[in-house]
Design a protein around this nucleic acid. Sequence first.
DNA 1: CTCTCTTGGTTGACACATCACCCATCCTGC
DNA 2: GCAGGATGGGTGATGTGTCAACCAAGAGAG
Lengths: 164, 164
Amino acid sequence: MNDIDTPAEPRWLSDTEQHAWRVFLRMQGQLITRLGRELQADSDLSIADYDVLVHLTDLAGGRRRILELARELDWEKSRMSHHLARMAKRGLIAREECPADGRGAFIAITPAGQAAIEEAAPRHVELVRRMVFDALTPEQVAALGTVSEQILKQLDAPQPSCEG
Amino acid sequence: MNDIDTPAEPRWLSDTEQHAWRVFLRMQGQLITRLGRELQADSDLSIADYDVLVHLTDLAGGRRRILELARELDWEKSRMSHHLARMAKRGLIAREECPADGRGAFIAITPAGQAAIEEAAPRHVELVRRMVFDALTPEQVAALGTVSEQILKQLDAPQPSCEG
DNA sequence: CTCTCTTGGTTGACACATCACCCATCCTGC
DNA sequence: GCAGGATGGGTGATGTGTCAACCAAGAGAG
């Protein structure tokens, strides 16, 4: 394919890097899994549900165009479409027509969705605190934020596919 | 359910914590998605496939009991079972009977699996380096490792369900 | 030797994510 | 006013992960 990308001697990770990487992967997987499981058990919501509902309530209007929602949450439109269909079937959100654009649709949170998120949020936040922030010093919290921002910035940067 | 867990005044996150948390979630989601996509496109492997194959090659014997593999990778046994079935169908691994335990089975990497992982690894590592480590200073790498370890340790610790 | 408990592993139903493709509706040039 | 692309959004197949339930084989206790 594009073997210009893979030099004969790849830049392998140092021991430190490899260790950091493996422990990061393990932590991230475990953490998301556990958070999702507890959220599901406590409040019958998935993390994806939670993210959508929180985002909708953060908006003053409580309604948003679908693709705009997708962009704001960094989701693919297809994922958003499938997920909103499931959420609508459960009564957490509702679709509304968009008078200005015949193709478009608004998504609005329903009273049931509102109730669900209000009930879920305190427990979820408490859980995040116990699982994550109780384990970290303020410096480590800051470092986590910085590192995450750096990586995100790197991801947004265009990939140099062949730098001389 | 268990409202002893949710005091009337939950300990909400501070602005700093909330920011760190949101950016971490976003980073982690984007990163895994992107890594998975590129690995799939380059080498026709999912991250899960990759993890299993790397783990098997790390072992001198190249074979492992199923649940042991699951424990070492922190997977649920059901997930492991489903995933191994799919990998076996693609010829990446093979099941072998266990003479010592009639119920059990060994999983062994096949030559095809070996070839797949050897071809995938350099590109994948290069990608991880570009997406993650190129963006971080050595101190930040260390911090990432430490933070991840702290959180993992917290996750392994028994959850205090009602501390007075 | 049987009765029960545990362990190793599978299965089926369902939720979720991605890819590739489709359809309808704007918008623009002419 | 209409051809053709861009945009908003849905669909279906497939792979992936979870839960709950199941089954078969070992391990002890009587």
